[in-house]
């Protein structure tokens, strides 16, 4: 299980990275923590003429408050985010989601940006970002742009990132004091979720309820608190086009999404009041 040959570029600044992407982007893959890409390269499920390793660009490691958001650089490690006081205060939903990401060992090197860019349908980090209606900041030599997280992944393992772009940062709308809840079900501890559900309550009146692992990309229900949680969640979940694979049938995903959706939303509501 050895990767096919690739050329290797290790930029030390973001400008160097963008220049490499401009030159090689069409045939290049960006290597962050490598926890997903490494496996795919080794199994020869992913190929690239050039690997652009962004592990040595210090600017990508920052966590900072920008306007109404917490901005996390693409290379912020999951373990560091989990320990960050800023994340705890300003993005508590991310903290909950991170507790379910992979394992202690993989979080040590795995990154926030890498997870979002990889766009696994079951991944917790893009689910939290979509639920919060956060933003993905993309950079290229052409300039930078901000894409709503809910539009970033178009299908499973695919995003609208252009070949010369890289994920530079994620913007997490600050939801201090809001009720947040996160639940998932997986066969084993640390597995990618079969179904993951994230909930956030804003201003005690609005909620967002995100579902991961059901469709190819996270799906989010926005609504107003009040009314029957079962009916609201049930109506939304019934419309989902669930995946069917050896890990779980579509019926199971729908059934559990409904159950976890109701539980998670209720839990968030209780915490919000």
């Amino acid at each position: 299980m050895k990767p096919a040959s690739f050329a290797y570029i290790r930029p030390e600044t973001q400008d160097e990275a963008l220049s490499a992407l401009a030159e090689h982007g069409d045939d290049a893959l960006v290597l962050a923590g490598g926890l997903s890409l490494g496996a795919m390269l080794n199994m020869r499920l992913a190929f690239a003429e050039t690997i652009i390793d962004i592990n040595r660009i210090p600017a990508l490691n920052r966590i900072e408050r920008v306007d109404e958001s917490l901005r996390t650089g693409a290379m912020v490690r999951q373990a560091d985010a989990l320990k960050s006081a800023d994340v705890s205060e300003a993005a508590p939903l991310l903290r909950l989601g991170l507790q379910n990401v992979g394992h202690y060992q993989t979080r040590s090197r795995g990154t926030l940006g890498g997870s979002v860019a990889h766009a696994d349908p079951s991944a917790e980090i893009p689910l939290c970002l979509a639920t919060l209606d956060g933003v993905v900041e993309l950079a290229s030599q052409r300039g930078s742009r901000r894409v709503p997280a809910r539009e970033f992944a178009d299908t499973a393992l695919s995003t609208i990132r252009e070949p010369d772009e890289m994920v530079e940062a994620l913007h997490w709308p600050i939801h201090t004091g809001a009720g947040v809840a996160f639940q998932e079900i997986a066969q084993r501890h640390g597995d990618f979720a079969i179904v993951a559900v994230a909930a956030v309550i804003r201003n005690e009146t609005e909620f967002s309820l995100g579902f991961g692992g059901v469709e190819g990309v996270p799906r989010v229900l926005d609504g107003m608190v009040g009314g029957s949680v079962e009916e609201t969640v049930g109506a939304f979940v019934d419309e989902l086009d669930a995946m069917d694979d050896p890990r779980a049938s579509a019926e199971y995903r729908i059934g559990v999404a409904r159950h976890l959706g109701v539980q998670t939303l209720r839990q968030a509501q209780e915490l919000a009041t």
Partner: peptide
């Protein structure tokens, strides 16, 4: 060689790393 079993875990610059990936 795909990061699940953990046998190859090492430390790399103060972090845990799967050395296969």
């Amino acid at each position: 060689e795909h990061g699940v079993c953990g046998a190859c875990t090492i430390t790399l610059d103060g972090r845990l790393a799967r050395s296969c990936m």
